[in-house]
Write a protein that binds this DNA or RNA. Structure first.
Lengths: 344, 344
DNA sequence: GCCGCGGTTGAATGCGAATGCCGGCTCGCC
DNA sequence: GGCGAGCCGGCATTCGCATTCAACCGCGGC
């Protein structure tokens, strides 16, 4: 008998629960019951059905099951730009956590926030049981989802109008801490490298920093725009120097990767030692922040706890859609690091 | 009328094509045809149906459609460990590329290769149209998938027995280039930091390097084990020094992240300037490899072209399952960088 | 000995959309 | 004006499984 591989054959009829039923000499309902967790079936029945199923190579069809049960056991995860280096970590943990609960992740990535509408449409068509999004949704979009009765968890976004649950890191508090430390250590000339303008995360971080600086008596702050990338941090520093007519005392970057770019620019292009001549702080606490060459002063998001909270909140609301939205805020871990001269 | 949000209501019946049909005063088939691309329907019909659909907020149910058409329009993507820093990039590009073709990505992540079997079962139950895997599948697993008539594309894995298509980077050639350059630049005492033993990628890279070194007359090579992480590179270097009784001339790391860890250890703990006193090379060409503090000598995988090839190959085989498997191998880009003393 | 109850099993139905087939209508051409 | 060729829309069926309802079996209690 020749071992022809299957991709050479015409695609055959799938084996269904009826096939198993026929082989086992029972009804289709019985097969269904055996493959469903809490259903009543005698031990003998189980045996026969399982034997028959193995014999014919039966595998329940999750699509058909989803159609009848109205549960797809899939959640959509929306992520905007991967440049935020901790997203892979987040993604890994989300899928793992969900899979422990028998739920699969349908992944959607966005290059531009404008794609959201079409992506949203996709998700809804696929009848996902819930949505985790790390991209900003506007009021209409949230209303649309609510309309469909699907629970949403916003990741690192504020909940709007109580239409969705949210998990986020307390960025304001984190930035205030960074700013306070810097000011206490006698830094006076400040500059900020912000993230993309359409990123609420960046806007929050930047404005928190500006506000705290003002509180502490520092009104003049140079702000240059970045896009979360290494390159934009790298270019941001010369831009700052140009605007200020000289180097600042400290640079506050909206994320770690830009902070790293900024440090490289300062050291390499301006011969400014960090932290001796210049303090640079970031935000996120991603992997490279701990590389010895940078050893960033930053605030680390408790990604693991945040993802766990996200998953827990979403699962609760899938089980009981009546539950009201909830917001959970986690404090970030302060990392003194060595990229800024601090008193601590 | 009070604006009660939906999560407070009982989950309502979904609006179906029948609802649209009733409102538009046509049959369900007509509705279906309007929402299907190449179907025949008059302009007036389209109008009426679309108006009615908007009015009742209809959205075709992809699950039901999948059941009847035998196509879920989903592909499974399996990724083993995210520590390989370029995976997020890969993932981003894969989902984007697939979505351009109307296909969604169902994501599966593996912590241990042992989880593959259960994950495989999941994928098959969800009737995915194709599979992209960056984790190793054994013969039985590939046979199982082939049995189900689902095309597979292996990412950076060799195709086995012609059971699956594969896209990969020519790692052997890349390692040979690195080794040749180092030897020509008079390096003699070599050490290698390998990746996890169960990673075929690491095994290939390591053995290619060892082999080429032998060809060039260098038999003695110290090999220490790593796990692709920064920390393991960082710990690998002291381990090498201990085994050798002193620093080597060059370290070949199985990936960039370990190379970075190794450099940090050499500089910080041994006061060895890189590349002056020690050459370190990596592999992958991930983002951090280009940070100025490291500027790695490495081989960069053409991730974009590879993902495009992967998607193209898989789509072809979804369309025509008869197509035989194919293997596409891409050369990596040689990056001279500055972490090794080379003649070029 | 009969009734009823708990536990099983089978037949039938429905989830929501796609599609083969057919009837009816329109339009063109002779 | 008649006839045939297309189009188009509707009817009925199907995908694979879960679930309701009713039938059934065995057993204990009265």
């Amino acid at each position: 008998m020749d071992k022809e591989t299957n991709h050479q054959k015409r695609r055959q009829r799938r084996t269904t629960s009826y096939d198993v039923a026929r082989v086992a000499g029972v009804s289709q309902s019985a097969v269904s019951r055996v493959f469903k967790a809490g259903a009543s079936a005698s031990a003998e029945m189980r045996q026969r059905v399982q034997a028959a199923a193995k014999k014919v190579g039966y595998r329940p069809n999750a699509i058909a099951r989803g159609l009848i049960t109205q549960r797809s056991n899939m959640v959509a995860v929306v992520i905007s730009r991967m440049t935020n280096l901790y997203y892979p970590e987040l993604l890994m943990q989300l899928t793992r956590e969900f899979s422990h609960h028998g739920i699969r992740v349908l992944l959607f990535t966005l290059e531009h926030e404008s794609e959201i509408d079409s992506v949203l449409e996709q998700m809804l068509q696929y009848q996902v049981d819930g949505i985790v999004t790390a991209a900003m949704l506007n009021r209409e979009q949230l209303a649309l989802i609510d309309e469909a009765g699907i629970p949403v968890a916003l990741y690192n976004r504020r909940s709007r109008d109580g239409l969705a649950s949210a998990v986020r890191c307390d960025q304001e508090e984190g930035e205030r801490w960074l700013v306070t430390q810097l000011v206490e250590a006698a830094h006076r000339r400040f500059a900020i490298i912000s993230g993309p303008e359409d990123s609420t995360v960046s806007v929050e971080r930047t404005s928190s920093a500006v506000q705290k600086l003002a509180e502490l008596g520092i009104q003049e702050v140079t702000v240059v725009g970045g896009d979360y990338s290494y390159q934009s941090g790298r270019l941001g520093f010369p831009a700052i120097v140009k605007q200020l007519g000289g180097p600042p005392d400290a640079v506050i970057a909206a994320n770690d990767v830009m902070a790293i770019g900024c440090i490289d620019a300062a050291r390499q292009e301006f011969n400014l030692p960090v932290p001796e001549a210049l303090s640079v702080v970031g935000f996120d606490g991603v992997g490279p922040a701990r590389y010895a060459a940078y050893n960033l002063t930053t605030v680390q998001q408790p990604v693991e706890r945040m993802t766990q909270a996200t998953v827990a909140m979403l699962l609760e609301r899938i089980k009981d859609p009546q539950l009201p939205p909830e917001e959970r805020i986690f404090a970030g871990a302060k990392v003194a690091g060595g990229s800024a001269r601090l008193l601590i």
